[in-house]
Simulated scan of single mutants.
Amino acid sequence: MTISLRHARVRYGPLEALHGVTLAAPAPGLTVLLGRNGSGRTTVLRALAGAVPLSGGAVVWDGTDVTRVPAHERARRGLCLVPERQAVFGSLTVRENLELTTPAYDRALEAYPPLESLLPRRAGTLSGGEQRMLALSRALLSRARVLLVDEPVQGMSPAVATRTYELLAASEACVVVAEQRLPPVLRDRPALVYELRRGAVVFSGEARELRASASGAGSASAEEDRSGRWSGSRPSG
C-alpha cells in the first residue's frame, strides 16, 4: 500500500505553499518529512489528509486518485491525521479521550505507562509532552491504515521520544511524520526521508543517504542531525 502526492500544488490565497511536490510513502513503513518552518512539510500532511485542497496535481492512495475525496471520507477509509496542535479533546479526561477510540485501551497504557496515573485528568490540563503521548496513543489504538503525524515528539523527554519512534517504526501502517531534523533513533533504521525547502523536495532517499549527502552538499537539516542537537522538547515548526 502506498499513499502519494503527484506534482501537488497548494495555495494559501496568493501564496503557493507547495510547488509541484511528488513523493510516495509505502506501507508498512516510516516516512519522514524534514524541513524548517515554512518548508511545506505540514502542508504535505494536510494535503494527504484532505485538510487543504490541491490547486494542481493529485493524491493517490492504493492506486486510486482520491484528490476529490473529502477529509472525513479519507478518515473513514483508515487515514488518521495527528496535527501539531489541538490533537486531543481538552475538556474530556484522558480516559474519555481513549474511550472515544476504543473501550479497551490497555494497549495505550502499555505504550505509555505514565498515562495510567493521568486517566482522571482533563486532557487540557496536561503538559505538551503528555498531550502528545495521549494523541499518539489514540492514533495507535485506531489501527489506522495511514497515520500522519506532525511533530510527534514535541515536548517529550528524549527517552519517551525514542520510545515513540520505536512504536511508530514497528507499526504495520503507512506512517508519515513531519520533523525539523532527523531524530537520532532513525539514523540506522530503514526510514524513507524527504527533505523539503520552500515548498519543494530537495532530497529523497534513506536516512544514511541524507547524512552522506549532507557531508558533501551541506544540507541544513542534516547538518543539525550530525551535530546531535535533537530532543523531544525542541520548538515546533
Rank of each mutant, 00 (worst) to 15 (best):
I3C: 09
H7W: 02
G13E: 13
G20A: 08
V21F: 11
L23W: 06
V32I: 15
R36W: 09
R36D: 13
G38D: 07
G38F: 13
S39W: 01
G40W: 08
L45V: 05
A47K: 08
L48P: 00
A49I: 03
S55Y: 06
A58G: 02
W61F: 04
T64H: 12
D65C: 00
R68I: 05
E73C: 00
E73M: 07
R74S: 12
G78C: 03
C80R: 10
L81V: 01
V88P: 00
V88K: 04
G90I: 04
L92C: 01
V94L: 05
R95T: 04
N97F: 14
L98N: 07
E99S: 09
A104S: 12
D106W: 10
A111T: 10
Y112M: 03
E116C: 03
S117C: 03
L126V: 11
L140P: 02
R143V: 01
R143H: 15
A144Y: 05
E151S: 09
P152G: 08
Q154V: 10
Q154N: 08
A159G: 00
A161D: 04
T164K: 07
Y165Q: 05
E166H: 10
L168Y: 06
Q180R: 15
Q180G: 14
R187W: 15
R189L: 15
V193Q: 01
V201Y: 05
V202Q: 06
R211D: 14
E224G: 08
S227W: 13
S227D: 10
S231D: 10
R234F: 11
P235R: 09
